[in-house]
């Protein structure tokens, strides 16, 4: 489904955000992309969806090289960006209709899908108002709805759970499960180990732009011995708890 062949991204200046990453995401799985802030998750995802060109290496989706000119390829992807980038001045309904138009979703289907998604994420009452009146979580939901309304095979979600309330997060996780079980693929990033543990079939851990681990949660456990996953996560990402003394915050 997704193949990353030694992709590297060096931003202008000298920031090597992604360093020789090889990764394969298979059909029918939920793949969690895990790493702390600034690890290179968003950069990798942006290269996958074509927003950034890799400095070197190749991105392949459905066996084809990713290319923003390939409209039919882009049509099969539902992408939710890390900060919901929906056009602020439109109303939610206008935005969804626009998405349906460019993805050429048939009329009968777009009505049904939109209604269902709106109900699931409880966004019905806000949909006629401009996005600029939405809270962060509501924007996140709108972004999700518009990524799913056209029924893409591949979901690429950059930190999708972050702004969601627990109920919506739960619904989303279930949707991801069902989508993968139907033979499709979900590729999502998170910096929260617990989420990865709950929903992923396999996970990849990235730190400082390099892949530190790829495999199942069980394999990760085995590899790193006993202990909670949170600890393992801290281990693979090489952050130690040397700074765990925060008494200075209250001190006067």
């Amino acid at each position: 489904m997704i193949q990353l062949e030694s992709i590297t991204k060096v931003y202008s200046g000298s920031v090597k955000a992604v360093d020789n990453v090889n990764l394969e995401v298979r059909p029918g799985e939920i793949f969690g992309f895990l790493g702390p802030n600034g690890a290179g998750k968003t950069t990798t995802i942006k290269m996958v969806v074509g927003l950034l060109h890799p400095t070197s290496g190749k991105v392949k989706i459905f066996g084809e090289e990713m290319n923003t000119e390939n409209v039919s390829l882009k049509k099969r992807i539902g992408y939710v960006a890390d900060e919901p980038v929906v056009m602020e001045k439109l109303t939610g309904a206008e935005y969804i209709r626009f998405i349906c138009d460019v993805f050429e979703v048939p009329f009968s289907e777009r009505v049904k899908k939109t209604e269902q998604l709106l109900r699931s994420f409880k966004l019905e009452s806000a949909i006629r108002d401009p996005v600029s009146t939405y809270s962060h979580g509501m924007r996140q939901k709108l972004s999700l709805i518009s990524a799913l309304v056209h029924d893409p095979d591949l979901w690429i979600l950059d930190e999708p759970i972050v702004g969601l309330d627990p109920k919506s997060a739960f619904i989303l996780k279930q949707m991801m499960r069902r989508h993968a079980d139907a033979g499709n693929t979900v590729f999502f990033s998170t910096h929260i180990m617990e989420i990865a543990e709950r929903v992923c079939d396999r996970l990849g851990i990235i730190g400082d732009g390099e892949i530190k681990f790829v495999g199942t949660v069980d394999e990760l456990r085995e590899l790193r011995g006993e202990g909670s996953l949170e600890e393992l996560f801290l281990e693979v990402t090489a952050s130690e708890d040397e700074e765990s003394d925060f008494s200075y915050l209250g001190a006067r």
Partner: peptide, 21 residues
């Protein structure tokens, strides 16, 4: 698609929906 794109861009550029609201 182009018409849909243009109408959305125009709306967003001139803030039509927001002003209406």
């Amino acid at each position: 698609k182009v018409i849909s794109l243009i109408s959305v861009l125009v709306d967003s550029h001139f803030g039509i929906s927001t002003k209406k609201y």
